[in-house]
Amino acid sequence: MEERPFAEKVPRSADLNEQPLVILELIQRLKVRDVMTTELLVAARHTTLREVQDIMKQIKISGVPVAENGRLYGLISIDDIIRALEGGYIDEPCQKHMSTKLVVLEDDMPLSFAISYFDRYRYGRFPVLDRNQRLVGIICQRDINRTLLVELTHELRRMEELTGGSSAPQDDYAGLYFFREFPVSKFDFENAGKAATTIKQLLQERSFPARLIRRVAVAAYELEMNMCVHSLGGVLTCQVSNGEVEIVARDTGPGIADVEWACRDGSSTANDWIRSLGFGAGLGLPNVKRVADHFEIRSQEGEGTRVRAVLVLASENKPKEESQGSGGG
């Protein structure tokens, strides 16, 4: 878990200079997997260096991983190809000439980590492995620049919306920023729920409205338990910025086949063992939907699931029109 200093209750101001450093927040929040290229062209160990050279030409990249069935064996860079041409062994298999002392990144690492790697190692690219040490992507500086530009534009628009002459009442929390991240492990019932409890405490310490704290805690808790019960593990994040609390649950799989169905009240894939622990009644996602002002879920079978729940501080001042049980889709 990253410990980061809080920008405590910065007084609300139209001056963007007083906003927290967006870029720092971005490179903490974004993960290597959000940035990396996943459409991989790889060479096998027996692929010749000439064939690798062709791949490089075709897609204008300067480094090709050597991998088979997700296992990474090495990397061929443009320098290796030049040396092969000079040395006259361009038709030999890359196994003999690839670099095997590799520096790799993991998909779960924050982007800030990747940036420091580029700075430290001066390589053009890093292969990205998942927690099972399987090759899942490759990251180069161009990927980082592109993603940051997109995210910054998005962030800027949000800041403009907040500061630009809207008549919406501003509250004291609008300038508050913090970000926390909690790993969640599969079936770790001993620790499950701690993230939500911690989030609740953090908000209490900052005197957020009690009703909002409760809604945030419910959303965080359900998402945390969902990951514990159903996923292979993942990360729960809580970010407070611009007068919003955002809870994101991102797991590494196995994904949800029918998202619409899963969000319906009573839909459950839990077995009796999970039910005996008091979970798996198909109320989790509907509960998150019920308490959140914005709810988003993205999933695909065989891949991970990402659920985002946003709770807006200002919405607490309004009477809640939808009382309960709206749950299902």
Partner: peptide
Amino acid sequence: MSDVLLVDEDDMMLLTSLASDQVLR
């Protein structure tokens, strides 16, 4: 537990036949 989380009222007491840490959380 999800059923408990549906409760909107404060100052609730919970009766349950489940004895686990999650009940408390």
